[in-house]
Design a protein around this nucleic acid. Structure first.
Lengths: 238, 238
DNA sequence: GTCTCGGATTTGTCTATATAATTGGCCGTG
DNA sequence: CACGGCCAATTATATAGACAAATCCGAGAC
């Protein structure tokens, strides 16, 4: 049974496919809202919504009086998805297991203290754990938690639930910064991840904020042969 | 001078900050559009727009009759930005330079032919180039172009403009898949990138579509000590 | 030519109103 | 209790009309 499609969606689809098919090329001018409303037999506001949403998606650029233009292909980048461990491991068909390696209340190194915006020497909570995919370590998680912002963490033992999951449940956050790099396993890292020294590692550094407050900083390390980050979404131009 | 803020934006800001501050927690019910319209002294459509946009951003979940709830922190992932080379290199303060290494019209290996959905043995265009940041190779780009979909590429020499940039200009696309992995440099890779054998490499595989058509497949390789992928956007939960 | 000003065009926001679609929950029946 | 049907709450979409804000462009001044 044919699903009813909203009018604004029909307008969006029509314009999007014209852009996709090259009928409307980058830089071309789109007809004004008023004209489109006539063509599609709907009100100006309906067309306005369609155009606004396409502009929000980055396909169009709109300026008063100048009209609506098809956006240039944006050179700034593409969006990639960073998965969560449990789901990722299970999607690959392995058994997921979390293992706590260390839980310590101590003062972090100066560089970490600065990242978390706490005084050097202040004691924070460090939680180190390993995420297993079957018989192999899938991710090594080394995390500092700012106990000033998450005092409840001192009462959690992190034996069953990873720090990552615990924080998701218990601490508000609004912003996460990531940095992804590749590196070669040192002897200690090789030991921790169960790979040979000199193997490739994919490392993600993650700093989680809540407004201006730095909640937690984590270094997440994966064996390079086991893990890949993938994009999933379609057609982002950002 | 105080900028005039639209009413729908004030509603969005108010709700967003209530969520950020924990006044509205995940799962909590937000007042109905009608009630909020009364509280904010605006029309229901204005509130509707605010709530709809917040729902599009993933902060709220809306269901008819059930009302509007604050979304659970979504465990599915985070968005990362993959930069473009020239801008990235220049942002780091290095001189950017592109160098063509190879340009060949030939049949790709079977695995690449399959990726591009062309017959095995069909001739495609292979363009290999290097992106330099000052005196170091920043990215090695090894690309196959589906000439059936981009015949104009056969006329381009790619000596000055990288295949990446040429394609952005000349070929429509609508969707890009990425896969990011870490690996250790083989002797040939070390040579190509000017790093020592065994160094860490960050490798991005990129497949670009246009509807069902596979336009181009590229393997982009970076020295792991020189390059990092970063997130920029704020507060995505996707 | 160049500069300034103002009108016209186009998008941005808002109100008021109406109708459709979805669905949680109540009620009644078996 | 289980199940189905109906009601009402709530969101989703749409229209018409109005005014605001930005800015392109041309007319006129100099």
């Amino acid at each position: 049974m044919a699903q009813k499609v909203p009018a604004y969606q029909r307008v969006k689809d029509a314009l999007r496919s014209q852009i996709d098919e090259g009928i409307l090329v980058a830089g071309a001018r789109v007809a004004s809202e008023e004209v489109l409303a006539g063509e599609f037999g709907c009100s100006r506001l309906t067309v306005h919504r369609a155009l606004r949403e396409l502009a929000d998606e980055g396909l169009l650029v709109r300026r008063r009086r100048a009209g609506t233009l098809v956006a240039e292909r944006d050179p700034s980048g593409v969006l990639i998805r960073v998965p969560r461990m449990r789901a990722e491991v299970e999607a690959l068909g392995f058994a997921y297991r979390y293992e706590l390696v260390q839980r310590r209340h101590a003062a972090p190194r100066a560089v970490v203290a600065d990242l978390l915006r706490v005084e050097r020497g202040a004691r924070m909570l460090r939680v180190v754990g390993r995420h297993w995919a079957g018989a192999r370590v899938f991710q090594h998680e080394d995390r500092w938690i700012n106990v000033a912002l998450a005092p409840a963490a001192l009462a959690a033992d992190f034996a069953e639930v990873s720090a990552n999951e615990w924080l998701l449940e218990h601490v508000p956050y609004s912003c996460v910064d990531h940095e992804i790099t590749a590196r070669v396993a040192s002897a200690r890292e090789a030991e921790a991840l169960g790979v040979s020294e000199g193997a490739a590692l994919l490392r993600v550094r993650r700093l989680t904020h809540w407004a201006a407050r730095r909640v937690t900083y984590a270094v997440l390390t994966h064996p390079g042969d086991l893990f890949a980050l993938r994009s999933e979404a379609e057609g982002y131009s950002l």
